[in-house]
Design a protein around this nucleic acid. Structure first.
Lengths: 352, 352
DNA sequence: CTGTTAGCGCTTTCAA
DNA sequence: TTGAAAGCGCTAACAG
């Protein structure tokens, strides 16, 4: 009488039989696009499906249709707020289009990224979004491009976040300009003895921010000598150690710019643990505007990137449901994300 | 000469033809479990696959085999560090078993959760992990259970994180005990005028923590009167507003416990913005030990949950590759996660 | 508008 | 061992 607990999910076949119609009719009632099926039948089918606890087997559907409803998202580290915010945006936009998001993490490793892309291709995702930081150069770049090209040649769509990676679609983050503007603002506040905790030089994002920042300072006659640029890991601990190293160097410093917020958070902690009051003795600035930087003390000056929005845009760009124009342009094009310097207590006006 | 850019991915059929073997042999060489295929053939097939840029169509494979390599993870909010850390663990453990993780967000909405589970079933995932906070009671609970039961009846495996939800597997988080122990430690430090920023009463995790905390205080003769318990949102802003409300009430308070860290972070900010020095005038404690609480000022006292590990365990529990024993037991059973009170500067010993 | 019948790409008997 | 052929659950012509 009641639905028996079978050992395998109800199939469309079962539903059709239960409703006393043909397989085709069942299919059309449940999933078909053109609604050309007798209402009475339709109801019977829907009821039967209900009764049997039927859910369309998306895989089978995908095989039959030759297209899936999957989106693959690659991030360097999902626990990093930068990426988890982007992921939130991607997932949100995807669910609007009834797409399912698969997340893979690459750990900022180019080889692993390549392998992941390969593995993910097996899923035949509709789109693939690469949010991990692009390396400045890598033996795997060419292979990655080839892999993605093949992916697109076979009907997929790849989209990048951050740096332009022709010929693929990109949600461009103008890191250079953002960092430049930040530097200018900071210089105008009176900072002069500046140091940077830079990321690994293989990460383009890190490099671009360093470049832009250097350029901005230069416009105000501030020179960033090599010993004032400390290479560190792109993580909180990287920032922490970078700051320690800097302090140990004995250089006179009134401002430290860490190329991303999680590093900047580490810098703040390092300063404090070394007995230096961040924001008073030494100003600190980061980049990204992740949520926590408003809650640490002092609240961090940074450059805001609307992370969730970036994720949403990437998805739309890839699925073609883009709101505005194209999106691969550089500069002020419609595909470029606005970035804004946010001045907070960590960089008060310099009294000097 | 070079691989042509065809309009659809190479199929196993293509590979077989290219290698001059049968479909079956190709299949066996590339994916078959029992390795009973002539090495010479195998090589030819692998090479052909290589040449054609072939990747197994996971969907088709799933249809044919009747089982997938997908794991579905449901979280309330992927941008919340609590969930993103768990997700990191799940993804890590999953990739070890060559499983792909699909993430859906439910936004702490029971109805949406139910719908998501339904939709996800279409993916025929091998396992489904529900990390969102269980509601204390909900009209949808019963339906959810039914849906998941059906899912398991048809070969799937569901696993919960946090609260026991018989008959499903669970990675148990003993919130009650963790909060209890925290309360005891705090009482021993000399705190007496305690207030709690509690979460919504519909969230079981929030309730359990409140309960345990209350009990712990009671053991030290401290009574938590109703006006000292403020209901608030489970977010940073919830904590912020809760603290404001508390301050406005004019009650004498020497310690505020927020039922999770993100709320506690909000509390700290609210105190500071109100001119109260957190940690000195009023102690603050949270729960979860998310990464940022070590970097805010003062560093937060909290209860540590090994979040990534929880994610990893949930996956293993669900796939049956569990390391130790069963895992559904309560109390000290092997399935229970150890939680530890971490005392930091936000709750110094009380001079009183 | 409905049902029949080929596929979709892959796995897996079952003979050879 | 290998290959031919019959599915897996679903969709999409194609006739009726």
């Amino acid at each position: 009488m009641s639905a028996p607990a079978s050992k395998s999910p109800a199939t469309l076949h079962d539903v059709a039989r239960e409703a006393g119609v043909s397989l085709a009719t069942a299919s059309r009632s449940l999933n078909g696009s053109a609604r050309k099926v007798n209402e009475a039948y339709r109801e019977r089918v829907v009821e039967a499906a209900q009764r049997l606890g039927y859910t369309t087997n998306l895989f089978a559907q995908a095989v039959a249709k030759g297209s899936t409803t999957t989106v693959a998202l690659l991030v360097a580290d999902i626990a990093d707020p930068y990426f988890s915010s982007i992921a939130a945006g991607v997932i949100d936009a995807a669910s609007e289009e009834n797409l399912v998001v698969t997340i893979a993490v690459t750990g900022r490793n180019a080889q692993r990224e390549l392998e992941t892309v390969r593995a993910l291709r097996g899923q035949r995702p509709r789109v693939m979004i690469l949010a991990g930081s692009r390396p400045t150069a890598s033996a795997f770049q060419e292979e990655l491009r080839a892999e993605l090209t093949a992916f697109e040649d076979t009907g997929g769509k790849a989209a990048f976040i951050s740096q332009d990676a022709p010929p693929f679609a990109t949600v461009l983050l103008d890191n250079r300009r953002g960092a430049h503007d930040l530097a200018v603002s900071l210089a105008e506040l009176g900072y002069r003895d500046v140091a940077v905790i830079a990321g690994p030089s293989e990460i383009r994002t890190a490099e671009e921010r360093l470049d832009g920042f250097t350029a901005g300072l230069a416009e105000h006659g501030i020179l960033l000598t090599p010993e004032r640029i400390i290479q560190a890991d792109f993580t909180r601990d990287g920032g922490y150690r970078g700051a320690q190293e800097l302090l140990a160097s004995g250089l006179a410093v009134d401002l430290i710019f860490a190329v991303n917020d999680v590093m900047a958070v580490g810098v703040v902690s390092a300063l404090r643990n070394a007995g230096v009051v961040p924001g008073e003795e030494i100003g600190v600035a980061g980049y990204d505007d992740i949520p926590t930087v408003q809650d640490i003390t002092p609240a961090l000056t940074t450059v805001r990137i609307p992370l969730e929005d970036v994720g949403r845009r990437a998805l739309r760009l890839a699925t073609g449901s883009a709101s505005s124009g194209a999106g691969t342009e550089a500069g002020d094009g419609p595909g470029t994300i606005p970035m804004k310097t946010i001045l907070r207590e960590s960089t008060p006006r310099r009294q000097a």
